[in-house]
Simulated scan of single mutants.
Amino acid sequence: MPWVLAACAALLVGWIAVLGATLGTSATVRHWDVSWIGLDILEVVGLLATTVLMRLRAAAVAQVAPMTAMVFLVDAWFDVTLSQPGWAYAGALLSAAVIEIPLAALCLLIGWRSSKGPTGTTADRPTAGPRGESRRAAASSPAHPGARAAG
Score class of each variant (00 low, 15 high):
Ala65Cys: 03
Asp75Val: 14
Val71Cys: 08
Met54Leu: 09
Leu53Trp: 04
Ala69Met: 08
Arg55Cys: 15
Met54Tyr: 11
Val74Pro: 00
Gln63Trp: 02
Ala59Arg: 11
Ala59His: 04
Thr68His: 14
Asp75Met: 04
Ala62Leu: 05
Ala59Ser: 07
Arg55Asn: 04
Gly46Phe: 07
Met70Ser: 05
Arg57Ala: 09
Leu73Gln: 07
Leu48Gly: 14
Leu53Tyr: 10
Ala65Gly: 05
Val71Trp: 05
Thr51Cys: 10
Ala49His: 04
Thr50Lys: 02
Arg57Tyr: 05
Thr51Gly: 10
Arg55Thr: 15
Val44Leu: 09
Leu56Asp: 01
Leu73Pro: 01
Val61Ala: 15
Ala58Phe: 07
Leu48Asn: 07
Arg57Gln: 07
Met54Phe: 10
Val61Asn: 04
Thr68Gln: 01
Ala60Val: 06
Gln63Ile: 03
Met70Thr: 11
Val61Lys: 01
Val74His: 01
Arg55Pro: 00
Trp77Ala: 12
Ala76Ile: 08
Val52Gly: 03
Val71Ala: 10
Ala62Gly: 09
Gln63Asn: 12
Thr68Leu: 00
Met67Lys: 03
Ala58Cys: 08
Thr68Phe: 08
Met67Cys: 07
Met67Asp: 13
Leu47Arg: 15
Val61His: 06
Val61Ile: 11
Leu56Thr: 05
Val45Met: 06
Met70His: 10
Leu53Thr: 07
Pro66Met: 09
Val71Lys: 02
Val44Gln: 05
Thr51Tyr: 15
Ala60Gln: 13
Leu73Ile: 09
Ala76Phe: 02
Ala76Leu: 09
Thr50Ile: 12
Ala58Pro: 03
Ala59Pro: 00
Val61Thr: 14
Val45Asn: 04
Thr51Leu: 09
Met54Arg: 00
Val45Pro: 00
Pro66Lys: 14
Ala59Tyr: 15
Ala62Thr: 09
Leu73Lys: 10
Ala58Arg: 08
Met54Ala: 12
Ala58Thr: 03
Asp75Trp: 12
Ala60Phe: 08
Arg55Leu: 15
Phe72Asp: 02
Val74Asp: 01
Thr68Arg: 01
Val52Leu: 08
Val45Ser: 08
Val45Gly: 00
Ala49Tyr: 14
Val64Cys: 13
Ala49Ile: 06
Met67Ala: 00
Ala76Tyr: 04
